[in-house]
Simulated assay, not measured.
Amino acid sequence: MKQPKLTFRKPDAKDGSEIWSLVSRCKPLDENSMYCNLLQCDHFRDTCVLVEQDGLPVGWISGYIPPSTPNTLFVWQVAVAPEARGLGLGKRMLAHLLDRPETADCARLQTTITKSNEASWGLFRSFARSIGGELTSAAHFDRDDHFAGHAATEHMVTITFEEEAMAAA
């Protein structure tokens, strides 16, 4: 079976509404406002990636480098369209982001995941293994303390990697 032709690129502001539509099709992801996706594409384009198949968005990662930890890429959201699942896009997008000059000084990747999100745990565990990174996690945003009981506790997942491991990504 022939692999589809995929294009990995930085988003720009005109992609915001299409990314918003993609995320809305990727349940159970939290839908941000269209304006939030627009800002991600505009302000954080260097640490986000959009994947297109035949000109249509099928993959998206929003991320940023927190000002307090400039050696960390924080991954906010990973979305893969239902029709593009099974192509390894999640890992490929993560590797693509970490291969950019803008993330060259990053020594770790962080994200938050709820305990029940098996797909995200699987993606980040698999990615950590593939680059020889160490994955750790701890409760971070508490259901009651931070979400007033309206959302599950988010666990901070940290993948620490060596420079040699990143070269292999």
Results as ranks from 00 to 15, higher is better:
Lys2Val: 15
Lys2Arg: 15
Lys2Trp: 15
Gln3Val: 14
Leu6Ala: 03
Phe8Cys: 06
Phe8Val: 08
Phe8Ala: 09
Arg9Thr: 06
Lys10Cys: 13
Lys10Leu: 14
Pro11Tyr: 10
Asp15Leu: 15
Ser17Tyr: 11
Ser21Arg: 04
Leu22Glu: 05
Cys26Met: 13
Asp30Asn: 11
Glu31Thr: 14
Asn32Tyr: 14
Ser33Trp: 08
Ser33Glu: 12
Ser33Val: 08
Ser33His: 11
Met34Tyr: 02
Leu38Tyr: 14
Leu39Val: 09
Gln40Ser: 14
His43Gly: 12
His43Tyr: 11
His43Val: 14
His43Gln: 13
Phe44Pro: 09
Asp46Tyr: 08
Thr47Tyr: 03
Leu50Gln: 10
Glu52His: 02
Gln53Ala: 02
Asp54Asn: 09
Leu56Cys: 09
Leu56Ser: 10
Pro57Ala: 01
Pro57Thr: 01
Trp60Ile: 15
Gly63Thr: 03
Tyr64Met: 01
Ile65Trp: 07
Pro67His: 00
Pro67Lys: 01
Thr69Val: 10
Pro70Arg: 04
Pro70Glu: 04
Phe74Cys: 14
Val78Trp: 07
Val78Glu: 01
Val80Tyr: 08
Val80Leu: 07
Val80Pro: 00
Leu87Phe: 14
Leu89Cys: 03
Gly90Glu: 05
Lys91Ile: 02
Met93Tyr: 10
Met93Gly: 07
Met93Trp: 07
Met93Ile: 11
Ala95Ser: 15
His96Leu: 02
Leu97Ile: 15
Leu97Ser: 13
Leu98His: 09
Asp99Ile: 07
Asp99His: 12
Arg100Gly: 11
Thr103Ala: 01
Thr103Ile: 01
Asp105Arg: 08
Thr112Met: 08
Thr112Glu: 07
Thr114Asn: 09
Lys115Ser: 08
Lys115Asn: 10
Glu118Thr: 10
Ala119Ser: 15
Ser120Lys: 13
Trp121Gly: 02
Trp121Tyr: 10
Leu123Val: 02
Arg125Cys: 03
Ser126Gly: 15
Ala128Val: 04
Ala128Cys: 05
Gly132Met: 10
Gly133Ser: 08
Glu134Asn: 04
Leu135Asp: 04
Thr136Leu: 05
Thr136Ser: 01
Ser137Phe: 03
Ala138Tyr: 02
Ala138Leu: 10
His140Thr: 03
Phe141Ala: 04
Phe141Arg: 03
Arg143Leu: 06
Asp144Ala: 06
Asp145Ser: 00
His146Gly: 01
Phe147Ala: 01
Phe147Pro: 05
Ala148Val: 08
His150Ala: 12
Thr153Phe: 04
His155Ile: 01
Met156Leu: 14
Val157Leu: 07
Val157Glu: 05
Val157Gln: 06
Phe161Lys: 02
Glu163Asn: 06
Glu164Cys: 05
Ala167Phe: 06
